[in-house]
Amino acid sequence: MKVLVPVKRVIDYNVKARVKADQSGVDLANVKMSMNPFDEIAVEEAVRLKEGKGHHAANTAEEIVAVSVGVTQAQETIRNALAIGADRGILVQSDTDLEPLAVAKVLKAVVDEEKPDLVLMGKQAIDGDNNAVGQMLAALLDWPQATFASKVEIKDGKAQVTREIDGGLQTIEVALPAVITVDLRLNTPRYASLPNIMKAKKKEIATKAVADYGTDTAPRLKVIKVTEPPKREAGEKVADAAELVAKLKSKGVI
């Protein structure tokens, strides 16, 4: 089985996003960037499918291809995926920040070329928080989707996926090929070891341009402005629990 794992380069989850003074967006200059945490979980799961770790049979995945649609530096993100255990990478270069629909179209073109049996990806990127690309990719391919996965089992050309839904868990079975988007509980990604980081430097990353795929990636949304949310002011200190309870009662919240 061949697995395609789309990965996105985003602001590191420990860095506070700061809105630019001209309200044109979030300031990413000189900010630490990392792989989207949900994508890291997707890469880890793909590697476990290959290694036969956990409940997976060995070689459930034979080849893992990491793909990123983004700026030149997204190479580092792909390199990171290769260090965790992906076999090769594809960078589809884009100088502009593509909208989720456009990314889904580019990924569809990559899937048409690579013909994976499974696309494993993060449920959302922590920058735009759209939670949309996986579902859209599945729709464009006419593939079934299993979103918000907390457990994945591959057998007999099918994927049995446990999904995190409001109030509990739902298990569905989808026929492969399919798109699975992953949630936090699926696994805890490993730290890439130094030897694996060195090995990753020798793995191949093919570079393409968005234009190579001839898809319509024109924006549909115009960002009017990006603003700071209303600021919270530090409130008051209370002396003890009794005073706290009195304050909360006066506010009517308990």
Partner: peptide, 30 residues
Amino acid sequence: VAPISDIIEVVSPDTFVRPIYAGNALETVQ
């Protein structure tokens, strides 16, 4: 069409406010 996720305000029939970066910024999109 481009989906618009998680809106918290309708500014006009084609313009909406949605949180991005886990709510650390609010984006107004048309």
